[in-house]
């Protein structure tokens, strides 16, 4: 049996929104799906890298996210929540990431301990340029944030979602989401001002 990859025709002047591409993907337009995937690939992968603190894990979660998107595509097109496809995509990615860390909680804690030791030693030993040091310190500072705060901070930056959408996505009141963001900003400022080894 021959399987064809169709490209559906678009009405003149119609804007290729996420929802339209998702609908076309559901109707068998793989090219539309590829466009949709590329539209958020960098944001999503960066977000997952910062969230999971691992490039390899981020890539795995990235793939799992897309597999889940395809699996539940009919659900999305039949009733997209607030924030549209992007919010849905980042919600799935966040849930996948949470699932992963929940299932590997023990390894996670062990990894955190190991990472803290190695990074502290590296910071003492390495004589890095100021800019690179600042970047490295920021990464370290973000990694020190509690998961709930880091999630809101990274969602806000990488998904560019509104606070209302982030709160809805995380299933918490708006004030809680704002509180986590605020705490994250305050904590980051403190961490960046104090010596790293402290």
């Amino acid at each position: 049996m021959a399987v064809t990859f169709v490209r559906t025709t678009e009405p003149a002047g119609e804007q290729l929104t996420d929802e339209l591409l998702a609908r076309r993907l559901r109707d068998g337009d793989v090219i539309a799906g590829e466009s949709l995937a590329r539209r958020y690939s960098e944001q999503l992968l960066r977000y997952l890298q910062r969230l999971t603190r691992s490039e390899q894990v981020a890539e795995d979660v990235y793939q799992q996210t897309w597999l889940s998107v395809l699996e539940h595509l009919d659900k999305f097109t039949s009733g997209a929540g607030p924030g549209g496809f992007k919010a849905w995509l980042f919600r799935i990615a966040t849930n996948k990431s949470n699932d992963l860390w929940r299932s590997k909680g023990r390894e996670h804690r062990a990894y955190d301990g190991l990472r803290l030791v190695t990074e502290t030693e590296a910071a003492d030993a390495a004589a890095v340029p100021e800019t690179a040091e600042h970047v490295e310190k920021l990464r370290w500072a973000i990694d020190q944030l509690p998961d709930s705060q880091r999630q809101v901070l990274l969602l806000r930056y990488y998904s560019e979602m509104k606070f209302v959408e982030i709160a809805e996505m995380l299933g918490c009141p708006l004030n809680t989401a704002l509180g986590r963001m605020h705490k994250a900003m305050v904590r980051l400022k403190q961490l960046l001002e104090e010596p790293r080894t402290a």
């Binding site: 793989v30 590829e34 590329r38 690939s41 990235y62 597999l67 395809l70």
Partner: peptide, 18 residues
């Protein structure tokens, strides 16, 4: 990594379609 992830996603998309 991005190109790799995108390629993998496209493969998944096509396989899903098939």
């Amino acid at each position: 990594r991005l190109r790799s992830a995108e390629r993998e996603t496209v493969r998944s998309l096509r396989q899903w379609h098939i």
